[in-house]
Design a binder for these strands. Structure first.
Length: 338
DNA sequence: CTGAGAAA
DNA sequence: TTTCTCAGG
């Protein structure tokens, strides 16, 4: 998933308070995948309602985004549209890895290998059409805006930030930087601690910001060259060159000026190189969206989460008290932005 | 992951 | 109060 340029980038930990009143374009696919893979029981089973429907993503959205909104963050979810043709290889590979993980999960579970079982359970996570539909339904009920991208969500989100409609992108991946996002924030949560799997270790996890301009300056390359570096290592659109990691990719691209220079030097080719590079520079995007943070529909949320998906009404009401106090109407902290 | 409640 | 464990759906 994504590229491995993270090692080359300048990262700054920030306080969540610094994001107050900032519009954060959320990479929906990335976030939902994270929820599905992490919000699980100890045996690896995701949260499910009584009819067997997975609900991990609903729990994640409800709690995390209520917290972020309470901290003054203004989230807008950006969903993927139709992937580019040349992503099919990656998508197929992900499908195969998921299938294999699913089988290994069953095996490990049957043999009582708990740690392995959990690992493979996570790797078998899939962001299905139903998961996306459920998530959109909950976002609408919570009053959180969302955008459907014509193609890649990260491209659309980057466009929205460049246009000034959003301030930064929330994602664990670095791909948005290739699409020209001025800044990306990772680890977008308010709870500062994360437990390392199967260990008694707790690590402080703070939001981490990456500025495109600063990183480019530090590396001494242009955005076009950063795309070239990423393509040397491998992106969602190409497998990457053999025996070339971030360090050597940077060195080679700087030495030869571009990926074309590197390829000539080592006598290799990348299929559809020009159109892939152009896709990063000029991806399909849309202006067809409206960003409004509205009062949550309490009755609708109770019906959807509690009546349909077996959430505890007590818990949901408590979260909604906090959400209502910070969304739409009245003394909302969000209104002052307009 | 997150909130709630137990343990320290 | 703070830290840790566990269930949530």
């Amino acid at each position: 998933m994504g590229t491995d340029i993270g090692d080359l980038l300048q990262k700054h930990t920030i306080e969540i308070a610094e994001l107050s009143n900032k519009v954060v374009a959320i990479d929906a696919y990335n976030t939902l995948y994270q929820f599905l893979s992490i919000i699980r029981q100890r045996d690896g089973t995701p949260l499910k309602d009584s009819s067997g429907q997975v609900t991990s993503h609903l729990s994640g959205i409800l709690y995390r985004f209520t917290n972020l909104i309470e901290s003054g963050v203004k989230p807008v979810f950006v969903f993927d549209g139709k992937p580019p043709e040349f992503k099919s290889g990656t998508l197929e590979k992900r499908h195969e890895i998921r299938e294999a993980a699913s089988a290994k999960w069953e095996d490990a579970k049957a043999q009582g290998f708990e740690e392995e079982a959990y690992k493979y359970a996570q790797a078998s996570s899939k962001v299905t059409k139903e998961i996306i539909e459920d998530s959109i339904k909950l976002l609408e009920l919570m009053g959180i805006p969302y955008v459907k991208a014509p193609s890649e969500g990260e491209a659309q989100a980057s466009y929205m930030v460049r246009k000034g409609d959003a301030d930064l992108i929330g994602s664990q991946d670095y791909d948005s930087l290739l699409f020209g996002a001025p800044s990306v924030v990772r680890n977008l949560t308010i709870t500062g601690k994360r437990k390392l799997p199967r260990k008694n270790l707790y690590v402080d996890v703070k939001p981490e910001m990456i500025s495109l301009e600063e990183s480019l300056e530090e590396l001494g390359v242009t955005r076009s060259q950063l795309i070239d570096i990423a393509m040397c290592i491998g992106t969602d659109y190409n497998p990457g060159l053999e025996n070339i990691g971030p360090k050597r990719a940077l060195k080679f691209v700087k030495e030869h000026g571009s990926i074309e220079g590197v390829l000539f030097e080592i006598g290799k080719e990348i299929e559809d190189l020009d159109s892939k590079k152009d896709f990063f520079m000029n991806p399909p995007v849309t202006d067809d969206y409206e960003l409004k943070w509205e009062k949550p529909d309490r009755a609708g949320i109770i019906d959807f989460l509690c009546k349909q998906h077996d959430f505890s009404e007590d818990r949901v009401n408590k979260v909604l008290d906090r959400l209502e106090a910070n969304m739409g109407g009245g003394q909302s902290t969000l209104d002052q932005w307009f």
